[in-house]
């Protein structure tokens, strides 16, 4: 229990260190999440729209779950060497499955009658996707992004093992920062993950107020 009190004292004593590391953490997570979104979101939406690639969408999420983050980081390190990009690449691989799979199923499972009605009114494929299917599937799409961002923030911590910056540097370096520093940094990471999850939950509620019960 004393360590816990010490952890808060560590926060009060080292606000600059923690802020700087939190900034690096956000930079790494943000870059990875951004790249994963650009790659996976359009692909998932488009495949869902075509009702094709079920194998890819389901397979990616199964394989993705089986890939341990430490293994990904370690693989990235052996292939790309130490640096920002090996960690980013590993985190992108980690973030793609939930985004892709949720985007696919969000669009794929849209009410066919509604889609047919939109087509019957003369909407083009792209219009149907952007004006009908995407708004209807949005809660599920956002749920995927929420899971991906929690994963990425959590795993960016482990990136410190492979020379990445961020709060993980404090967590894996107990020799320099002591257990109180380690616990303090762990609490900061948890707060970051909660903040990301909370923000995305809020976005989802604002975007589709009728789906509040969905998780």
């Amino acid at each position: 229990m004393k360590t816990f009190v010490d952890a808060f004292r560590f926060m009060a004593d080292n606000p600059h260190l923690l802020l700087e590391k939190t900034g690096e953490h956000l930079e790494l997570s943000g870059a990875a999440l951004g790249i994963a979104l650009v790659l996976a979101l359009p692909l998932g939406l488009w495949l869902g729209h075509l009702h094709r690639g079920l194998f890819l969408a389901a397979g990616v999420s199964n394989v993705g779950r089986a890939l341990p983050s430490l293994v990904l980081i370690a693989f990235g390190l052996t292939i790309f060497g130490v640096g920002f990009w090996n960690n980013t690449a590993a985190l992108v691989v980690l973030a793609i499955p939930p985004i892709l799979t949720n985007a696919y199923f969000a669009i794929d499972t849209c009410d066919r009658d509604v889609v047919d009605a939109a087509r019957g009114m003369g909407m083009t494929g792209m219009q149907v996707l952007l004006r009908v299917e995407l708004p209807l599937g949005l809660p599920f799409v956002l749920a995927g992004i929420r899971v991906a961002s929690i994963f990425v923030i959590a795993t960016a911590t482990i990136a410190a093992v492979a020379g990445g910056g961020g709060l993980g540097q404090i967590i894996v370096n107990q020799a320099s920062y002591g257990l109180s520093g380690v616990v303090a940094a762990s609490l900061c990471v948890s707060v970051l993950a909660f903040a990301a999850a909370g923000i995305l939950t809020l976005v989802r509620r604002t975007a589709s107020p009728s789906h509040e019960s969905l998780t």
Binding site: T157, A185, S186, V189, S190, A193
Partner: peptide, 10 residues
């Protein structure tokens, strides 16, 4: 939601 490495240390 708590990152695994952080939960271990906490």
């Amino acid at each position: 939601t708590i990152p695994s490495l952080a939960l271990f240390q906490i």
